[in-house]
Design a protein around this nucleic acid. Sequence first.
DNA 1: ATCTAATCGAGACGGTACGTCGAGTCTTCCC
DNA 2: GGGAAGACTCGACGTACCGTCTCGATTAGAT
Lengths: 209, 209, 209, 209
Amino acid sequence: MEHQPESEAQVRPPGRPRDEAARERIRDAALQLLEEVGFANVTCDAIAQRSGTSKATIYRWWPNKAAVLIDAFVESVTPELPLRDPTTLEDYVTVHLRQFARVVAGRKGRLLAAVIAAAQNDPEVEAAFLSHWIKPRRALSRQAFQKLKDRGLMPENLDIEQVLDAMYGPLHFLLMVRHGKPTPAYAESLAALLLHGLAPRHGDAAGGR
Amino acid sequence: MEHQPESEAQVRPPGRPRDEAARERIRDAALQLLEEVGFANVTCDAIAQRSGTSKATIYRWWPNKAAVLIDAFVESVTPELPLRDPTTLEDYVTVHLRQFARVVAGRKGRLLAAVIAAAQNDPEVEAAFLSHWIKPRRALSRQAFQKLKDRGLMPENLDIEQVLDAMYGPLHFLLMVRHGKPTPAYAESLAALLLHGLAPRHGDAAGGR
Amino acid sequence: MEHQPESEAQVRPPGRPRDEAARERIRDAALQLLEEVGFANVTCDAIAQRSGTSKATIYRWWPNKAAVLIDAFVESVTPELPLRDPTTLEDYVTVHLRQFARVVAGRKGRLLAAVIAAAQNDPEVEAAFLSHWIKPRRALSRQAFQKLKDRGLMPENLDIEQVLDAMYGPLHFLLMVRHGKPTPAYAESLAALLLHGLAPRHGDAAGGR
Amino acid sequence: MEHQPESEAQVRPPGRPRDEAARERIRDAALQLLEEVGFANVTCDAIAQRSGTSKATIYRWWPNKAAVLIDAFVESVTPELPLRDPTTLEDYVTVHLRQFARVVAGRKGRLLAAVIAAAQNDPEVEAAFLSHWIKPRRALSRQAFQKLKDRGLMPENLDIEQVLDAMYGPLHFLLMVRHGKPTPAYAESLAALLLHGLAPRHGDAAGGR
DNA sequence: ATCTAATCGAGACGGTACGTCGAGTCTTCCC
DNA sequence: GGGAAGACTCGACGTACCGTCTCGATTAGAT
């Protein structure tokens, strides 16, 4: 009897396999509609029609409308925010703030705002947004900061969660309230502010740093 | 026909005068329901029933459901955030962050989140929110920071607008995304973070400050 | 103070009154569609559209699709089957069989068949059909036969329920199975058969009566 | 190459042969489910699951859900209604009504009702039902009545077709409308009613026969 | 011993109707 | 004319079933 290579394994389950193309078309349609009519006005019927699928297929793979839109959003925004290995604290903070400011200023920023807004009115959106976007992104960022700590490039006593809030909070504020523009210059000077603090340094003159 | 004294400014229009008590009961009912069942599950029928009024009355005075809650917000949240004269930078930042964290954690925080969410889909809400809430509040805060600068208690080169974002952004982030709790301790340690910055101080050991 | 005529009474309840015209339009649309596409293919959306109303209104007044169609059917067929006061047994049986045969042969007969067919597949249809059509009709017919008994024009020992089955069963059989035509002649000779029975009469020759 | 005896009529086609056991299991499952949940609530998925087959197999051999149940009906109901040679008119009518009442009251009755219902919306079902069930059964019954006429045990002038309607119509009525129970007693008294007629006999008192 | 072809199980798919729910409007009577 | 009551239109929701399809696995006769 021959050797059965069970290594590569993952035997296909019986039955017709899931149509990945349809899955993709649904996400694309959701994303298009999200941009065109806004979160609240996207309907599942419209997604089904636009994607050439059916509501049944949508509801087979996503528990509700919100999940589809969040999924589409995550799939679309993730590649725009690559998480790189940190070299120094200054570099890491500056680069990521600049990156995120670019997203906030653009089309994807409006999507993010729409999703966060929708989360205020719908526990299902909130749950999906937290578990599919916020939590995984923060987990990765946390690891980066932990590496910096491990290398002695960042004070041990800082609460990383709070550092993340201090980094991303101001840009989310700008995103949702729109009282100013998230330019690259804004991102850079925000990074400087966070890195060095508000208070005058020891031995500094009041006006210098 | 008698002389109608038009001196008293606006002549009373004919017909039954508006029932101000009903208006108030509607606002109260909206706030109660918001706490009990959350924004999404507040229905206009429920507000009408709770307030002992009718949907017709609600829609006569507010254009839609969101407007009712926004109105309630504006009427109720303003007095909770007094702006005091600054003594030191540390004190000012710490006190106001604690104050705002308390609001974010409470009922009024949910209202604020709802208003910001509504602003994402409605330019009128956005404009009203900016002009009636954000701008006046920030103007007052700006004056306070300017006083600190004038007294040499704050570095001259800091952009006050950005300082305000750095202060209030993280708490708004927490308010909208709810990935953590805005406790008083959180507010205080956030204040410390902002005041002293992320980067290790000159001559500091990596782990200390 | 004037006399308040409380006699005519039935004070109108508060609120907007039910739109009887819409009710009627719904019934008409249901009836039209029933004829056009058959019981199973009538949809509530179609009824709503055809009648210029909405599904919500339909479901406010009828518990489900079947009830609408039964209601429409009853409203439409009842006037075609007037129940008259009996003069003699022979007359009553003959007249009503002729009358019902005419319905069975016509458009309304197809409706009746569709409703009975639908009742086989749906307990809700069955219940609605029994309570809105069969039971009231049989109650009225029963009264007529009871009058005949009271006047000595019909044997006391006959079970009226069974007499009704014997009268209306054969025509329903013809309606559903369509192995023959319910002509007036058929109705008359059926009446004779029922009145005089199959068995040869005492003293009759086998072939005569 | 060997000689293939084509005498045995149909040559076996290539490929896997039809699984007759599966066919039988599908029919059985359909009958079981019909009893358990009623016609409307039998789903093809349920039949497939219960029978350990798949929907594909069902739809390979039957055009739709109704056809499965009709098929099961034809296979299972025929042997339950033996047609015996008549001795007297009274005996023949009474025995066959009792026999048919038993069928109407039972599981096979529900099947018959379902088939008749399906025939209302499907000319093919109607044709199949008439040619495979109604016509052959009636032909046999007609012969029996003709024998009775030939022996002088039944009036010559009766229309045998109508006699069959009068016999089987009421029980079909009960079968489809279910406003009463087809008990043996019901069958017997129906036979008496048909044999002797409704009208009081010559010289009878009104209340007697 | 393969090769070919049809059947089988499983289950995903497009489609369509269901019955429900909320938003916002309209209609009536009462004050 | 304003207010309570409540019926109305509109349109989306999420569910269920139908009948079709696409897989891999199975089962034979044909080669």
